[in-house]
């Protein structure tokens, strides 16, 4: 099975006046057509930066310093600005964490949808308007026809996010990079949007990179999960397996912090401390200052990615040689 998107050894650096920071380091993953890859991890771990790099939208002072990004077997990180823009409008769509950055405050949402579709698809004005109204209905916007005339500021946070989703879906892209697409939405609209995403994957073979903090969403729609910590992938594996038996101590801590609907504890489990800052990277395993299972070597040696079953785990505990040696 060949991947529709293949990210290989991606490294993103941020240039500062006196030094260079590394926001994303040695990140590799594949997404096949029709597959949904969930990306989770600490706030600031580099999830959005990774998505932005795939989209070719990194802006100074951030830049890709190493690695390759392949879309449908073709290298896209070396494309020029115009070629990349054409690809982005038509074949790769983005849904950003912040809906306001994707919407033009001075244009009605109907005009924005119609303009996007007419730029990339061969549609008449009337056909585009028709399709815009249908898309708004599909993402659960009430009174879609009347809402075409609304401006973004006249809508609630969740409604704006649904408009952004409609914009992403409108040209039937082959790859969607969705950064927190449903966090602003209530659970019933969220379920509706996730159904829609899943249907697109199944019926049209759309591939999705879905960044989310919601483990419920991960459990429901993703096929594989990638866990990021301090700019690196620490665990990648099939969703069911990762949720049932996470291997990396950070992933386990993450799972333990989820509040439970049916239990009310005074304190939630929390991983002590915080992720190292970009300007103060930690040698060895970046998680070692917080890791309850850290070994002596963890502070000095960075663990490579080990394959265990169907998962990849960057932790010395997963080292088959280390386990027998220790």
């Amino acid at each position: 099975m060949s991947a529709l998107l293949s990210v290989q050894g991606l490294r993103v650096e941020i240039a500062q006046r006196h030094r260079v920071l590394t926001a994303v380091d040695d990140v590799s993953f594949d997404i096949a057509a029709g597959e949904i890859l969930g990306v989770v991890g600490e706030s600031g771990a580099g999830k959005s930066v990774t998505g932005t790099a795939v989209l070719g939208l990194l802006e100074r002072p951030a830049y890709q310093a190493a690695g390759r990004i392949l879309f449908d077997g073709r290298r896209i990180d070396t494309l020029d600005e115009d070629a990349m823009r054409a690809l982005r409008g038509r074949e790769i769509a983005a849904v950003f964490q912040d809906p306001l950055t994707s919407l033009d405050p001075l244009m009605t949402i109907g005009d924005q949808l119609v303009e996007t579709m007419r730029t990339h698809l061969d549609l008449t004005q009337a056909e585009a308007v028709e399709r815009a109204a249908r898309l708004l209905a599909e993402v659960g916007i009430p009174a879609p026809r009347e809402r075409l005339a609304s401006y973004p500021h006249e809508m609630s946070g969740g409604m704006r996010q649904r408009v952004v989703l409609a914009l992403a879906f409108c040209c039937e892209p082959r790859l969607i990079i969705a950064d927190e697409p449903t966090t602003a939405l209530d659970v019933s609209i969220q379920a509706q949007i996730l159904d829609l995403l899943r249907a697109m994957c199944r019926e049209r073979g759309t591939a999705v990179m879905l960044v989310t903090h919601d483990m419920g969403v991960i459990a429901e729609v993703t096929d594989h999960v990638a866990v990021m910590y301090a700019g690196r992938l620490v665990e990648v594996g099939p969703t069911r397996r990762l949720l049932a038996a996470a291997a990396h101590p950070y992933t386990r801590g993450l799972m333990a912090s989820i509040p439970d609907m049916y239990r009310r504890d005074e304190e939630l489990m929390q991983i002590p401390g915080s992720m190292p800052r970009l300007d103060a990277p930690v040698p060895g395993c970046a998680f070692h200052p917080r890791c309850p299972q850290a070994l002596a070597r963890c502070a000095g040696e960075r663990p490579p990615s080990f394959t265990t079953g169907a998962s990849q785990v960057a932790c010395w505990l997963a080292d088959p040689a280390g386990r027998s040696a220790a």
């Binding site: 989770v40 991890g41 600490e42 706030s43 771990a45 964490q97 946070g157 927190e180 966090t183 602003a184 903090h213 483990m215 801590g253 993450l254 912090s257 989820i258 509040p259 005074e266 304190e267 939630l268 489990m269 929390q270 991983i271 915080s274």
Partner: peptide, 20 residues
């Protein structure tokens, strides 16, 4: 208003514990 919806679950746990 949605104080933790932009946060991962471990930072969410820290913020909720902080709020409490």
């Amino acid at each position: 208003d949605e104080p933790t919806s932009a946060l991962d679950v471990s930072v969410q746990a820290q913020i909720l514990n902080l709020m409490k």
